[in-house]
Write a protein that binds this DNA or RNA. Structure first.
Length: 424
DNA sequence: TCTGGGGTCCTAGGACCC
DNA sequence: TCTGGGGTCCTAGGACCC
């Protein structure tokens, strides 16, 4: 029997909720979390939203409001958020084997309705158990397609009477419900398509649902068409249950300050390559090409701008960090120009294939095995003793270019030195 | 002074081949 | 001087997501 019901689970204000789990003083207080480099606001508690702090706005623009209202500010602490996310997902996976880990704070579950007589009650128990076991509040939207489940969840967030769960699998007035959803709030409709649709007098999810299919296919391709059909309760976006290996791996950061000297950019690029290669090995892959880019600050129009990057194809696919660093620095030295104030650099690994695909065919087989075991040992030590216990000299010691992280909370769950201390 | 960092999929068009 | 049609593969770019 086919699963025909989807639940969308969304952690409420996830990063803010994570901070609250280990810091009860933050309960009922306004909290915001900053992006990497303490640049923008990326998460807000309800209280902070109520004070008018917008999503994605640069920190310096709202710093006054934040200070005046004594809003708590945190740098992002992805180590902590990643760990709590894993805990939430673990709890969710007890409810059904059919689960998609959609993002750090969202999941889709699917199940068969005939085994459940009351979906709303089921949703409530999901919510209660996740909260009890992890301390993270979630909301639940239930529908016949993933797109509609997302929409149901949006209603949950706007309407406290729903108590965190909204089941629209047999909603009697679906059109009236969808009329309340602006077209740009539909999952899969971004700013460009929203503009196009509004120009054509398609203003709500209801309008989009009832639009001519051929027009959609023509203007928005098959992706747009799928979204349209999903609003008609025809499920065409499947649950992605298997975690696929990444096809591209990026590591890039803005610098904490301007960098003008080659040797400092070299340190950064070396560090980012190290990080990307770790991710690559984590999924047991190797990469066949590598892209390096550097950028000046494009927000400063009056400053001299230079933004460039270059790709290199590797002779043999590899995940061996020293080799990748060598290639990355080779590119960097080709593209680097003196006389500019650089603000960001990055490394992107692509042409990714499973490591097992090359090992057999490699004539330098034994050499490969040796290098692999070296990297395995390094990864193992860094896992146990913390990131960068063993690092590469080319990444520098002082790392003056490092991003700002002025307000980071402790990594309560993953670092021995940062466990929660309780005085008794 | 200060503006994030990742990813995915699809499509159009060019290169190349027979 | 004329100069087909169909297929594949690759890449860049555009849309989207969190």
């Amino acid at each position: 029997m086919r699963n025909n019901i989807f639940a969308h689970i969304d952690c409420n204000n996830f990063y803010a909720s994570c901070e609250r789990v280990f810091n009860p003083l933050l309960r009922n207080k306004p909290v915001v979390i900053l992006s990497n480099n303490d640049g923008c606001i990326v998460a807000r508690s309800e209280e902070a939203k109520a004070l008018g702090i917008g999503m994605g706005v640069p920190y310096f623009k709202v710093k006054n409001v934040i200070d005046q209202n004594k809003i708590f500010v945190f740098s992002s602490n992805y180590t902590l958020y990643g760990d709590l996310s894993e805990r939430v997902m673990n709890v969710l996976s007890n409810f059904t084997p059919n689960i998609e880990y959609y993002s750090i704070d969202e999941a889709f579950l699917s199940f068969n309705k005939i085994y459940l007589n009351n979906l709303t009650d089921y949703g409530k128990s999901i919510k209660e158990i996740v909260l009890k076991n992890t301390g993270i509040p979630v909301s639940v939207g239930i529908a016949k397609t993933k797109t509609l489940a997302k929409i149901a969840n949006e209603f949950v967030k706007k309407n406290s009477k729903l108590n965190g769960v909204f089941d629209i699998t047999n909603f009697p007035k679906m059109d009236r419900l969808l009329q309340q959803v602006p077209v740009h709030d539909i999952w899969g409709i971004g700013s460009q398509y929203a503009k196009l649709l509004m120009k054509n007098h398609v203003l709500s999810a209801c309008d989009f649902k009832n639009i001519d299919e051929h027009w959609v296919k023509n203007k928005m391709g098959v992706v747009g068409l799928r979204t349209c059909l999903e609003l008609r309760e025809i499920s065409c976006i499947n649950l992605e249950e298997t975690i696929k290996a990444k096809k591209g791996i990026m590591s890039s950061r803005s610098f904490g300050r301007y960098v003008t000297e080659l040797d400092e950019v070299e340190e950064a690029v070396s560090q980012y390559t190290t990080r990307a290669a770790e991710k690559l090995r984590m999924q047991n892959s190797v990469c066949g090409s590598l892209y390096v880019f550097i950028q000046t600050n494009h927000h400063k129009l009056h400053e001299k701008q230079y933004s460039t990057g270059r790709t290199i194809s590797l002779q043999e696919p590899t995940s061996y960090t020293p080799e990748l660093i060598k290639e990355a620095l080779y590119i960097l030295r080709k593209i680097f120009k003196k006389g500019y104030k650089y603000i960001k650099a990055g490394v992107y690994l692509s042409s990714i294939i499973p490591g097992s695909d090359i090992q057999l065919s490699m004539y330098k087989n034994t050499e490969h095995t040796k290098l692999n075991s070296v990297m395995k040992a390094v990864d193992g030590l860094n896992l146990i003793w913390g990131r960068d216990t063993i690092k590469f000299a080319s990444s520098g010691i002082e790392q003056k270019w490092k991003m700002n992280m002025c307000y980071r909370s402790n990594r309560y769950t993953t670092n021995w030195d940062e466990l929660l201390m309780i005085r008794i």
